[in-house]
Computed example of a mutant assay.
Amino acid sequence: MTNLTDLLERAADQTPVGPPPLDALYAGATHRRRRRTVVWSALSTAAVVAVIAGTTLAAQRGPAVSPPATSPSPPPAAMRLVGLGHIAIAVPSDWGTNQSRCGTPLRDTVQIDDPSAGQYCMAYRPAGVDSVKLGRGGPDLGVKTDQHITVGGVPALRRQTTCATGSSGVRICSGEVRFSDVWFRAESSTSAAEVDRLLSRVVIVPDQVGVPGYQSFPQVLRGVQYAAVLEQLGLKATFRSTKNVNYLSGQVLGVSPAPGTMLALGTAVTVTVVK
């Protein structure tokens, strides 16, 4: 053991020792810090994606079925809920509403009770535009349904996302989820993945209800009729009147908050009617 120790000491004395490689050490430490930053950024991004993608599709049964008792998780940051009845979808908060021409979205938007939908003109969807359209009605037999799904014990229909190139040369993808009386259609000239991502954000909100539209009814809606619809949904109506010679007395001209806004049960909606 003594000979081995002497041998190691002599070898150490004969081995030249230069200055410590500080530059290399600093570079290595910086590289490791960058790697840790990238890893934490990736983990944070994955967590946000998991929150959005993990939002479960939900629906409501017919009138005899009560919504689930459990409340959903709140929408991700910088998102807002838009819906009909107790069913809603989370969309980016900077999206507009009915940003469309003749029913064709011109920028990222939610379409609900869209006054331009019945107009006809040459309007083309630009590239990179995403949209969600909400409407009332059961499954459309004319629309091919690729998958019967059950969400929380509630049946729904999912139309597979498909893409096609329109006459303007823009590739548009679309998909749809339908429940007993509410449907959500997502369209995107960005990608098919964006359609799937949008439809993954459909939720049920037992303690909130969407403000109903008034322009999509088959007949001219008067204030007392709209108030009855609000009451059935658990909301209240307050009225303000205005003069307008182009409309019938008592006809609804507008509501606030806007259709699709999710409100707590018992909240009042201001209904503007013609004197």
Score class of each variant (00 low, 15 high):
residue 166 G to K: 06
residue 6 D to Y: 07
residue 219 Q to E: 11
residue 83 G to K: 04
residue 31 H to W: 09
residue 55 T to L: 14
residue 57 L to W: 05
residue 250 G to C: 06
residue 261 T to V: 04
residue 88 A to C: 11
residue 164 A to L: 10
residue 186 A to S: 08
residue 32 R to V: 15
residue 257 P to L: 00
residue 105 P to D: 13
residue 78 A to H: 15
residue 274 V to E: 15
residue 273 V to F: 02
residue 138 G to L: 01
residue 192 A to S: 09
residue 162 T to S: 13
residue 177 V to C: 01
residue 78 A to N: 15
residue 2 T to Q: 14
residue 240 R to H: 08
residue 181 D to F: 03
residue 158 R to E: 12
residue 234 G to I: 02
residue 268 A to F: 00
residue 85 G to S: 06
residue 181 D to H: 12
residue 40 W to C: 07
residue 54 G to S: 13
residue 114 D to W: 02
residue 88 A to S: 14
residue 235 L to G: 00
residue 177 V to T: 03
residue 47 A to R: 12
residue 36 R to C: 04
residue 39 V to S: 14
residue 100 S to V: 04
residue 243 K to I: 10
residue 53 A to F: 10
residue 8 L to E: 10
residue 105 P to A: 13
residue 166 G to D: 11
residue 91 V to S: 08
residue 220 V to P: 08
residue 186 A to E: 05
residue 18 G to H: 09
residue 67 P to M: 06
residue 73 S to P: 15
residue 145 T to A: 12
residue 144 K to V: 14
residue 24 A to T: 11
residue 9 E to N: 06
residue 274 V to Y: 12
residue 233 L to F: 01
residue 175 G to M: 08
residue 201 R to I: 04
residue 206 P to E: 04
residue 128 G to D: 13
residue 127 A to R: 14
residue 157 L to K: 03
residue 23 D to T: 13
residue 134 L to W: 00
residue 214 Y to I: 06
residue 208 Q to R: 15
residue 206 P to S: 04
residue 141 L to G: 06
residue 172 I to S: 13
residue 118 G to A: 03
residue 54 G to T: 09
residue 148 H to I: 02
residue 218 P to D: 06
residue 184 F to P: 03
residue 99 Q to Y: 00
residue 37 T to Y: 12
residue 67 P to T: 11
residue 181 D to Y: 06
residue 102 C to G: 10
residue 9 E to P: 02
residue 56 T to E: 12
residue 176 E to Q: 11
residue 11 A to H: 07
residue 179 F to P: 01
residue 160 Q to A: 15
residue 214 Y to C: 07
residue 11 A to K: 07
residue 63 P to Q: 10
residue 238 T to D: 13
residue 194 E to C: 02
residue 180 S to C: 05
residue 244 N to W: 03
residue 246 N to L: 11
residue 9 E to W: 05
residue 48 V to L: 15
residue 101 R to A: 12
residue 47 A to K: 09
residue 239 F to L: 12
residue 183 W to P: 03
residue 28 G to Q: 13
residue 4 L to E: 15
residue 24 A to E: 14
residue 132 V to W: 04
residue 52 I to F: 04
residue 233 L to I: 01
residue 203 V to N: 02
residue 220 V to F: 04
residue 202 V to R: 01
residue 265 L to C: 02
residue 219 Q to I: 04
residue 220 V to E: 11
